[in-house]
Design a protein around this nucleic acid. Structure first.
Lengths: 251, 251
DNA sequence: GATAGCTGATGGTCAGACCAATTGCAAATA
DNA sequence: TATTTGCAATTGGTCTGACCATCAGCTATC
C-alpha cells in the first residue's frame, strides 16, 4: 500500500460513517412505537389484524410478525389468538427486563432484595417532598385497607403493595416508580411465602401496619428524612424474613 | 342456567385452572435461555445456523426466528447476516429496557438524571464496604487515566465512565451495577455535550478529578458514609450542567 | 505476494397455505 | 321466549419452500 492510497483511505475514514442497515422489522418497530408515542395507539387499543398491517406496511407477514414479537418481548404489545393484538395497558419494560434477567441469572434475586432497600428508601425520600393530595389519598387509603385486613394475609399483602406503589407514584418519577414496581413484583412471591409460612402472620401484620403508619405520617408531614428512615427500618425488618426464605429456597 | 349447573360450574371454577398455552416460540426461548444459564452456550458463542436449529427443535423456521427475535430484542443474542447468530457478551437487559422506555417516553431522560443520583450514591456506599483489591485497582487505574487526560475531554470522559463502572462492579451486586451502567450509558450522550460545549472543559475536568479522588479515598478507607457523601456532591455538581443541557435540548 | 472474483453459508424476506382458538350469529331446542 | 348448540368468519400461530443480500474463505490471476 503506497503513501497515496494510505492518505486517501484515512481521509475517507474521517468523513465517512457506516450507513445504517436496519432490518425491515426494526423499521416496523420504530413506526409502531412512534404511533404509541404520538398517542395514535393508546394502551388497550387493538392493532389491525396482522394481514392488514402487512398490506399497510408493504411487508411480508414474517417481517411484521418478527417486529410484533420484539414488541411483545418487551411487553409493549400482547397478542391473543382469535382476538387480536393489543397495546399493553401498562408499559413495564423494567419488569420485563428483570424477568429476563431472573431467567438467566438466579443470583439476581439476592441482588434484588438488596436493591429494594435503596429503591424503597429513596422513593420515600422523594415522595415526602412531592406527594400531592391525590397521592396522599391513595397512600392513606391503602393504609386503611391494611388496617382492616389484619387477619387476611392475602388482602393485607395486596394493600401493602398498593401502599408502596402509591408512594412510588408520588415521586412523580416514572422510572423510579417503574423500578420499584418491578422489584416489588418479583419479590412479592417470596413475601407471600414468608408471610404464609410464618404462622404468626397477624403479629407480623400488626408490626408492619405500625411501620407503614410511621411512614405515612412522615410523608404527610413532608419530612423526607423521617420518611426515608422509617422506610429503611420497615424494609430491613421485613427483609430479614425474606432473606431467610430465599436462602432456604435456593439452598 | 339452573341451580345444578350453577353449582357445578362454580365447583369447576375453584378447582380448574387454565392450562398453560405456551407458544412454540416461547418454548424455544425457554430452552435457549436454559442452555445459556447452564453454560452450554456462553457469551460470544455462535449458535448453530437457523436451518439446523429448526431441525433440532423440530419446528419451522418462522417459529424459530420469532424466538430468536425475542431474544434479540432483549439483547440476549445478536444476529449478523452472513456470519451467524451469537450470544451477546454482556447481558444487558436493563439497558435494553431503558432503551425501549426512552423510545416510548422522552420524559424519562429527566427521571434518569434524578435516578442516577440515587444509584451512584448507593453504589458508592456499598462499594466502600465490599471493594476488594482488584476492584480498587480498577478504580484507581481509571482515576490515573483521568488525571493524565485532563486536556483530552473524550479520553477523560471514557476514564470517568470506567471509574463509575468500576465502583458499580465493586458492589458485587450485578443488578445495581447493571442499573447504573444502563443509566450512565444513556446519559453519556448528554454528558459529552455538556463537557464539549462548556469551553472551560479543563477546569471542569480538574474539579471532577478532585471529586473522584475524594470518592476513591473514601472507598480505599472503607468509609461508606464518606463515599456516599462524596459521590452525592460530585453527581450533584455534574448534574447541574446536565440538567441545563437537557432543558435546552427538550425546550 | 497482493488483489479481484467466485462460491457456499447464513440471516432477512416473501408468499401461500393450513391449524387452533375465539367471537358472533343463527338455528335448534327447552 | 330464553337458552343452548352449532356453524362460519376472524385472527394469531405455524409450516414450507423459495429467493435475496451479505459475509468469510478460497482460488485464480496479475
Amino acid at each position: 500500500m503506497n503513501a497515496n492510497s494510505a492518505d486517501s483511505s484515512d481521509a475517507v475514514a474521517d468523513s465517512v460513517r457506516p450507513i445504517a442497515r436496519t432490518s425491515l422489522s426494526d423499521e416496523i418497530i420504530a413506526q409502531i412505537i412512534g404511533l404509541i408515542k404520538r398517542d395514535v395507539l393508546r394502551p388497550g387499543d387493538r392493532l389491525p389484524p396482522e394481514r392488514e398491517l402487512c398490506k399497510r406496511f408493504g411487508v411480508g407477514r414474517s417481517s411484521l410478525r418478527e417486529a410484533l414479537r420484539s414488541l411483545g418481548a418487551m411487553g409493549v404489545i400482547d397478542g391473543r389468538v382469535g382476538e387480536g393484538t393489543f397495546v399493553s395497558d401498562n408499559q413495564q419494560f423494567i419488569q420485563k427486563a428483570l424477568q429476563w434477567g431472573m431467567l438467566l441469572n438466579r443470583k439476581m434475586v439476592g441482588d434484588l432484595i438488596e436493591t429494594r432497600l435503596m429503591l424503597e428508601s429513596e422513593t420515600a425520600f422523594w415522595a415526602a417532598q412531592r406527594a400531592g393530595e391525590e397521592d396522599m389519598g391513595r397512600i392513606e387509603g391503602a393504609l386503611a385497607d391494611m388496617a382492616s385486613a389484619l387477619e387476611d394475609s392475602a388482602q393485607f399483602l395486596a394493600a401493602d403493595m398498593r401502599f408502596h406503589l402509591a408512594v412510588a407514584g408520588a415521586t412523580q418519577n416514572a422510572l423510579l416508580a417503574g423500578l420499584l414496581e418491578a422489584t416489588r413484583g418479583y419479590l412479592q412471591e417470596w413475601i407471600e411465602r414468608s408471610l404464609a409460612e410464618e404462622g404468626r402472620a397477624p403479629d407480623r401484620a400488626r408490626l408492619s401496619l405500625q411501620q407503614h403508619e410511621c411512614i405515612a405520617n412522615a410523608l404527610r408531614a413532608g419530612d423526607a428524612q423521617a420518611a426515608r428512615t422509617a422506610m429503611v427500618e420497615h424494609v430491613l425488618s421485613s427483609s430479614e424474613d425474606l432473606r431467610a426464605q430465599f436462602a432456604a429456597a435456593s439452598g
